[in-house]
Design a binder for these strands. Structure first.
Length: 895
RNA sequence: GCGGACGUGGUGGAACCGGUAGACACAAGGGACUUAAAAUCCCUCGGCCAUGCGCCGUGCGGGUUCGAGUCCCGCCGUCCGCACCA
């Protein structure tokens, strides 16, 4: 889950604006000292083990998890936002009586550690654990309600040892296997590159031309669950529709037909028929030629004796794999001289081409081409002068004159020019073609067979790198691939490695790879590939349920906790991480480690944190910490604090190191406190959308913290605490109604993760409460109502601003720890009022308000409506044609 | 190219099932307090006509409905995902 690693390097440069430094001065003289209070409460929580979760607690469970971070060394604002959200859920659910599991760990394997090793001569392990220590302390000052006792890093031997066990079980179950696969190979760094590390055909680091190489690699058989992973998406109703759709497209199910075309010339491989896959058997009569992938076995065989074909195939391999290259690549091919017979019209013979646009790893690597109804085939046919015969007629077109120009016709229509299928719809023709070909045989096998194809391919997990989980197998010349016996686990990474030379340090280690074969005892060698880091993050959520278990999971414990009730993280993991985790849960079920197939019941993807960008006169990026903003509106401009040079204010972008538009959470927390940072990250913007970090916004949040502190202090001082009075006057009841209603609203907002709305409701409560308090305390009933509102306010804020809330809770005279208190109880009676105010419309335009008894009948409402001055005026003597009364909502008078 | 989401004041955004558009906040303007500034408190804040019983207004154009930001059709724009998947 290694993305967005931003390690702010502006630690020492403060303050970030003039306004901020003034704020510090004020804070020192005001009463609420966030820094002091926050560390004090964090200590109290710690000493009382408030957030330590016990597995056999009898209360109902709630598992809330945020995607664990890559230990880049510094937390960034994205983390603050992500973890603030998760913490609200955790604290809210805890108050609601759940046994909450809220753990944290580290996605600690991966390339940056190796890069650091190469650049700075530090050991990847030391670099990683130092980063973890730094980030842990940063997270701790955020005051997150985490159970740190369950913490682990994926690079802990204890964790990856269990992962190796899982691998061995997968291997035994046939879920892990080896096959040849093409990789992007960087010949200078001697390493395999991911697609996104190949830029314009060159390695991102070395700049060397990337080669396609065939390597034997390890795969997980995710394709076993293609259908299951697809259909189970329907059960994930607490996932964003968008993510489900992205996964659906990624799995890419398509229904079609395998059809065998008999060769009329001898094939070099000895095959009697060419097998293709098609989703459009209805267009078979429009077939014009056959296409083979350059990687098709027949292509390869032909190339052995035909240099032209060999050249063509080599040329195809050179074209890049980037999206750009594919889009602009022209469709080219070469005639093989082979021909096949049309399966439905024996009089027709079709030429076989090798074409650059046909993929070997989809379907059979061969197609029949119907240029009239497929754009790619049409482009190819026009280039090579091949026939274009339309067989689907658009509605209303004349079969005699209908022709295809430069655009293939791919919409609905009626089949024609197609013998027995003429007049059918596309669906009918597909069915007819399938039936006919299923019934025919070539060489004792059916000529056609229905088949479901998936785009999803098996998951290649081999990485030729050091800093990852070693794949626990041994290669023996006599015995082949031998799994490491479980009792020999873990296969530990060697510590004595060097990064002076390119390539995988494991591969050139003098002794590590030498081992005796567990079967025959002869000299053998270890597998030197390590696992993709996505493997590490595919089951960490299960490990958290018992992070010390001697097996990958304690199945009973894992089954009791899983699925994760609420998972929160970035949309960038919508496909791979989440799909791999879903696969892993199923694979772990199949191997007896788990009984829960879907790991994440609720998923929430939060938006990014953005910031303005700044450019210095020389075009270089400037960080917010280096810039001072002067003026407002049109006159708003930025200058460099150091030297006063003008700075260009640029667009608002995702915070990133490269554009230097980052704000370091530690700086913010040091200046304003964790509560302010958390509060700001939760307010205003809906959590799924991007939020813009602004100085004004933080200061608004900070002022609000102060305002609450003052208000609570005033109330604690001036409003006497007392027992609940027998009766409440009107003013007290009004305040209480508002208080309890807001409590209901905020609870609902938390349930729906609508933190921005919860914040707005809290503002409302503060406004209401301070107005009521300014009105003076007129009696015991009002005193009670004010105290009650103050208590509610503090409790409603607590999940978002927990330290301030504890401090206020104490100020209000409560002894216990608020983080352990239960959620305020709503009095249902206060939620319903005796009179309601209905908006009154005349012809759909609002003209008046009608205040009337809640139980008033439709007739009473109608009568009262017609008596309203505004309605009488609007009617101007006419009679109402119709009165629509929507109970409890609105009245509309139609004239 | 295919698929999807979104479009509301100066700004971030509210508006639950079709029922008072602009909650709440930020920015701005005015006032109080102050020697002064900051902080704090109060007021104004979609547009227009000018003072009311007003008109217009949720990207644009149509439609359904007593009633549309919300539903339907067609455009325009922005963002995201996939991308030669036969």
């Amino acid at each position: 889950m290694t993305t967005g690693a931003i390690s702010g390097d502006s630690r020492a440069t403060r303050p970030h604006s003039r306004k901020t430094s003034e704020a510090i001065n004020i804070m020192a003289t005001e009463r609420y000292n966030a820094r002091e209070a926050e560390s004090r409460w964090q200590r109290v929580w710690d000493e009382n083990n408030v957030f330590t979760t016990v597995n056999d607690d009898p209360r109902p469970k709630y598992y809330v998890l945020e995607m664990f971070p890559y230990p880049s060394g510094r937390i960034h604002m994205g983390h603050v936002r992500n973890y603030a959200m998760g913490d609200v859920v955790a604290r809210y659910k805890r108050a609601r009586g759940f046994n909450v599991l809220h753990p944290m760990g580290w996605d600690a394997f991966g390339m940056p550690a190796e890069n650091a090793a190469m650049q700075n001569k530090v050991h990847p392990r030391d670099w990683t654990y130092e980063n973890i220590a730094a980030m842990r302390s940063q997270l701790k000052i955020m005051g997150l309600s985490l159970d740190w006792a369950r913490e682990f890093a994926t690079c802990d031997v204890d964790y990856y040892a269990q992962q190796q066990r899982l691998f061995l079980d997968f291997l035994k179950a046939g879920l892990a296997y080896r096959k040849n696969s093409k990789v992007n190979w960087d010949p200078v760094d001697m390493t395999v590159l991911a697609n996104e590390q190949v830029i314009d055909g060159r390695g991102w680091r070395s700049g060397a031309l990337v080669e396609q190489r065939e390597l034997t690699q390890w795969f997980f058989k995710i394709s076993d669950w293609s259908e299951e992973l697809l259909s189970a998406l329907d059960t994930l109703d607490r996932w964003p529709e968008k993510v489900r759709l992205m996964q659906k497209n990624w799995i890419g199910r398509s229904e079609g037909l395998r059809v065998r075309f008999a060769f009329t010339t001898p094939a070099p491989t000895g095959d009697t028929a060419l097998e293709i896959f098609t989703t459009r058997p209805d267009t078979l009569f429009g077939a014009s030629f056959m296409g083979l992938s350059p990687d098709h076995p027949i292509s390869a065989k032909l190339a052995e004796n035909d240099p032209k074909i060999a050249d063509f195939i080599a040329e195809c391999r050179k074209t890049g794999t980037s999206a750009e290259a594919i889009e602009t690549a022209e469709k080219v091919g070469i005639d093989t001289g082979l021909t096949v017979e049309h399966p439905l019209d024996p009089s027709l013979t079709l030429p076989v081409y090798i074409a650059n646009f046909i993929l070997m790893d989809y379907g059979t690597g061969a197609i029949f081409a119907c240029p009239a109804h497929d754009q790619r085939d049409l482009d190819f046919a026009r280039k090579y002068g091949l026939p274009v015969k339309p067989v689907v007629l658009p509605e209303g077109a004349d079969p005699a004159t209908f022709e295809i120009g430069t655009e293939a016709f791919t919409d609905e229509g009626k089949i024609f020019n197609s013998g027995f299928m003429d007049g059918m719809t596309i669906a009918e023709a597909k069915e007819a073609a399938a039936r006919t070909l299923e019934a025919r045989e070539i060489d004792g096998a059916p000529q056609g067979a229905r088949q479901v194809n998936y785009r999803l391919r098996d998951w290649g997990i081999s990485r030729q790198r050091y800093w990852g989980c070693p794949i626990p197998v041994i290669h023996c010349e006599a015995c082949g691939v031998v799994p490491v016996p479980v009792e020999d686990l873990p296969v530990k990474l060697p510590d004595d490695i060097d990064f002076d030379k390119p390539g995988n340090p494991l591969d050139r280690h003098p002794t590590w790879r030498n081992v005796a074969c567990p079967c025959c005892g002869k000299d053998a060698r270890r597998e030197t590939d390590t696992m993709d880091t996505f493997v590490d993050s595919s089951w960490y959520f299960a490990r958290f349920t018992d992070s010390k278990a001697a097996t990958p999971t304690d199945k009973a414990v894992a089954d009791a906790w899983l699925p994760v009730d609420q998972y929160i993280g970035g949309i960038e993991h919508a496909i791979l991480h989440l799909l791999y985790s879903r696969f892993f849960a199923r694979a772990m079920c199949a191997t007896g480690h788990l009984g829960v197939k879907e790991p994440f019941k609720g998923l929430f993807t939060q938006g990014m944190v953005t910031h303005e960008t700044y450019r210095k006169p020389d075009g270089a990026w400037a960080s917010p910490a280096e810039v001072r903003i002067d003026g407002d509106g049109e006159a708003r401009k930025a200058v460099l604090i150091d030297g006063g040079a003008d700075v260009t204010i640029g667009s608002i972008e995702k915070m990133s190191k490269s554009k230097k538009n980052t704000v370091d959470p530690s700086d913010i927390i040091e200046t304003y406190g964790a509560d302010t940072a958390r509060w700001f990250m939760l307010s205003d913007s809906p959590p799924e959308r991007d939020v813009q970090w602004t100085e004004d916004g933080v200061q608004g949040a900070w002022r609000f913290m102060q305002r609450v502190w003052r208000l609570i202090g005033d109330i604690a001082e001036t409003v006497p605490a007392g027992p609940r009075p027998e009766a409440f006057g009107e003013a007290a009841t009004t305040l209480r109604r508002a208080t309890h209603k807001i409590c209901v609203a905020v609870s609902g907002d938390f349930e729906g993760l609508a933190f921005n709305r919860a914040v707005a409701r809290v503002y409302e409560l503060v406004n209401t409460l301070s107005k009521a308090h300014q009105g003076g305390v007129s009696g015991a009933d009002m005193a009670f109502a004010l105290r009650e509102a103050a208590d509610f306010l503090v409790q409603l804020m607590a999940p978002m601003a927990p330290h301030l809330a504890e401090e206020c809770w104490r100020a209000l005279g409560h002894d216990g720890i608020l983080a352990m208190a239960s959620w305020p109880e709503v009095e249902q009676d206060l939620l319903v009022e005796n009179t309601i105010t209905l908006p009154v419309q005349v012809n759909g335009k609002k003209r008046a308000d009608l205040t009337i008894a809640r139980e008033a009948s439709k007739e009473e409402v109608e009568a009262a409506t017609l008596e309203l001055d505004a309605v009488v005026r609007a009617l101007a003597g006419k009679t109402a044609r119709k009165i629509i009364v929507v109970p409890q909502r609105i009245v509309n008078v139609v004239v």
